[in-house]
C-alpha cells in the first residue's frame, strides 16, 4: 500500500447481457494490497463486476487492466491472468470427483506444472491455513458447507495468486458456519493480499475493508472509506440500503 501500485483498473467499462445493460460506465481502481468490499441490492451487477476481473465475463466497452494484463475476450493471456487471480464462489464449486487434497493439487500440478511433491506440500500448508488439515483425504460431499468453502479458499490460495475475489462467500452457508469462513478471510486479509469481496455481512465488511463500494442498477453509486460509509454515506440510496441491511 505504500507505493500505491494500481493492480485492477476499470476505465469507462460497460457490460451488456444481450440488450440488458448490466454494468454502466464503471470507473474504479484498486491498488496492490487493498481490500475493497462491494455491496448493493440483488441484481445491481456486483457479481458481473467481480467476474469481469478474471474474465469469467467479458465487458463490451471501456478498458480493464488487471495485474498488468488488459482483459478482453480475445486476449491470449487470459489463462495467465486467471492463475494470478483467485476466485471463491458462492456455491463453492469444488471438484466432486476429487478428494480435498486433489482439489488443491490439480491447479498447481496441471496449470503451474509443479511436481506432485511440491503441490502436496503447498496443499497441506494451505489446508492448515484454513484449519482443516484432517479433511485432506475426504471427498467434498462428505464435508459441511463451511468446510467446503474453506477448501475452496485453500484451492485458490494454492495458486499463490496476488489477487483474491470473493463473490458472496457465505451466502450459501447455514448461519452457524458463516463465522468459520469469515474468520479465515479476515486472517487472509491480514497477510496483505489484494482482495475484492462481494458480501452482505456488514460487520465483516467494516472489519476488513479499506474502501466500501455501493452499487445499484449497474452503476457504482458510492465509494468511501468504511468509517464514512457506515456513518454518513453521501447518497440517499446507499443510506436506505444500509438501514435495511443493518436492521436485521
Amino acid at each position: 500500500m505504500t507505493d500505491n501500485v494500481i493492480i485492477i483498473d476499470f476505465k469507462n467499462v460497460d457490460k451488456f447481457y444481450g440488450s440488458f445493460h448490466a454494468l454502466k460506465d464503471i470507473n474504479i481502481s484498486v491498488t496492490e494490497g487493498e481490500r475493497v468490499v462491494i455491496c448493493g441490492p440483488s441484481g445491481s451487477g456486483k457479481s458481473t463486476l467481480i467476474r469481469c476481473i478474471n474474465g469469467l465475463e467479458f465487458h463490451n466497452s471501456g478498458v480493464l487492466n488487471v495485474n498488468g494484463i488488459e482483459v478482453h475476450e480475445n486476449s491470449p493471456y487470459i489463462n495467465d491472468l486467471r492463475q494470478n487471480v483467485g476466485m471463491v464462489f458462492q456455491q463453492f464449486n469444488l471438484f466432486p470427483h476429487l478428494t480435498v487434497l486433489e482439489n488443491l493439487m490439480i491447479g498447481p500440478m496441471k496449470v503451474r506444472k509443479s511436481s506432485r511433491i511440491d503441490a502436496e506440500v503447498t496443499a497441506r500448508k494451505y489446508l492448515d491455513r484454513v484449519h482443516i488439515p484432517e479433511q485432506a483425504d475426504k471427498y467434498p460431499a462428505a464435508l459441511s458447507g463451511g468446510q467446503q468453502q474453506r477448501v475452496a479458499i485453500a484451492r485458490s490460495l494454492c495458486m499463490e495468486s496476488r489477487i483474491m475475489l470473493f463473490d458472496e462467500p457465505t451466502s450459501a452457508l447455514d448461519p452457524e458456519m458463516i463465522n468459520e469462513v469469515l474468520d479465515v478471510i479476515v486472517e487472509l486479509a491480514d497477510t496483505g493480499m489484494t482482495m475484492v469481496v462481494v458480501t452482505h455481512e456488514m460487520g465483516f465488511a467494516r472489519k476488513i475493508s479499506d474502501r466500501m463500494v455501493f452499487m445499484e442498477e449497474g452503476r457504482i453509486v458510492e465509494v468511501s472509506p468504511p468509517d464514512q460509509f457506515f456513518t454518513s454515506p453521501s447518497s440517499e440510496r446507499c443510506r436506505a440500503f444500509l438501514e435495511q441491511v443493518l436492521d436485521h
Binding site: N54, G55, L56, N79, D80, R82, Q83, V85, G86, M87, F89, Q91, N93, L94, F95, P96, H97, I106, G107, K110, V111, R112, A152, R155, S156, M159
Partner: peptide, 25 residues
Amino acid sequence: KGQWEAASSIGMTKSQAYRYIILPQ
C-alpha cells in the same frame, strides 16, 4: 456450469478443463 468456472478460475485451458474436470464427471 460452476465446474467450468472453477476450472477456468484456476487458469485451466479449455482442454485441461475437459480432461481433468468435465469429462471425468
